[in-house]
Write a protein that binds this DNA or RNA. Structure first.
Lengths: 200, 200
DNA sequence: GTCTATAAATAGATAGAC
DNA sequence: GTCTATCTATTTATAGAC
């Protein structure tokens, strides 16, 4: 039963299939066999091309995802639309079919265990430290930016991973319209002394 | 090497150890052997007491966590402090040592795969549908409440699972002070027609 | 109640034929 | 370049001795 004799781009098909399986099952839940089945190839081929499950996983995250750069770029510009620009740029990464899979895989994998998070944390810390130095206004810029990003990650995770009804089905522009004001609040209004809520 | 001859409450020790391992490694990453080691007992004892890894996992989530009830209760009362009450009630579940483990385990497990999420989703949908019927003001109450919760989940996940510096080290009261205003914004100010941002 | 020994299943990886 | 067959390690689970 000779399958796929002259593989024009078997490698790419494996990566695509792997993205689907990793995205829905997580790193540990995904098996090489399941990925091979989805790609329509033999499990041995995966090791032939990638060497190991972990290297295949890495290949799965590579291509686009210059997520940090795309987000940092959007911080420049007028303070007025800052919240909307960041909200749109980030949520587009999840909406765009070209990057959706990677976002799901990255968040799911990094949240799956302390060990996995330890490998990803440096990248996140680096981005958080580069961002506010330049463009996020006011003191505690780093904390504000982190809060804004935490908010966005939460919204994206509930919409695209938890897939819970109200947020899952919201139109993209309405989602932006409802989320951006709170992000803007974090980025620009933070908590000036006196505006701070009572602490107990 | 007879270990722990008269187990006063071996069962409880196993559950406590399991919480630690499940919280740091996730469901699939945790092995019965690792849990047994952490509890200082033989792996066979775990099956003796719980029957299977999955039932041990369920036992791990049981006790406190009436999270939904605690959150819904807090929605009653003056609209003014609504954001802060909800923020405080939810983030306290993560801060309190008695419930911290379960929150980590529940979020980590439910986000780890589509299959796991499918088992948890009904509970979440139920809570989301019960909440706004009564106390969250305005139209689209359900959507607003969902956005507020997504925000809070994001903040909690970054602080307690990702453990990224700025949010990880923030004092609890300052975290509340910085988060509550955005939550309040979602719950009470939403987006009235005319206040909505341009859609492109 | 607790442990030893082992079964049974699953998964990642490799050798080699075609 | 692709597949068959198999190895080895790991893991959940069970049977039964002490």
């Amino acid at each position: 039963m000779g399958r796929r004799p002259g593989g024009l781009s078997t490698r790419k098909e494996i990566v695509d299939a792997a993205r689907g399986i990793f995205a829905s099952s997580g790193y540990r839940g995904a098996t090489v066999r399941a990925i091979a089945d989805a790609a329509g190839v033999d499990p041995a081929l995966i090791h032939h091309y990638f060497g190991s499950k972990e290297k295949l996983f890495a290949a799965t995250l590579e291509f686009p995802v210059h997520a940090p750069d795309r987000l940092l770029a959007v911080l420049s510009g007028p303070r007025e639309g800052l919240g909307e620009r960041l909200t749109r740029a980030y949520l587009e990464l999840w909406e765009d079919p070209a990057t959706h899979g990677q976002m799901v895989i990255a968040v799911r994998a990094s949240l799956s265990s302390d060990e996995a998070m330890a490998r990803v944390r440096p990248t996140i810390v680096d981005m958080l430290s580069r961002a506010p130095a330049s463009d996020v206004p006011g003191p505690d810029a780093q904390t504000r930016f982190a809060l804004a990003m935490a908010h966005l990650v939460g919204v994206a995770a509930v919409r695209h991973i938890s897939k819970v009804p109200p947020l899952r089905d919201l139109g993209f522009e309405e989602l932006i319209a409802r989320t951006a004001p709170a992000v803007q609040l974090h980025l620009t209004e933070g908590c000036e002394p006196g505006e701070r809520r009572r602490t107990s």
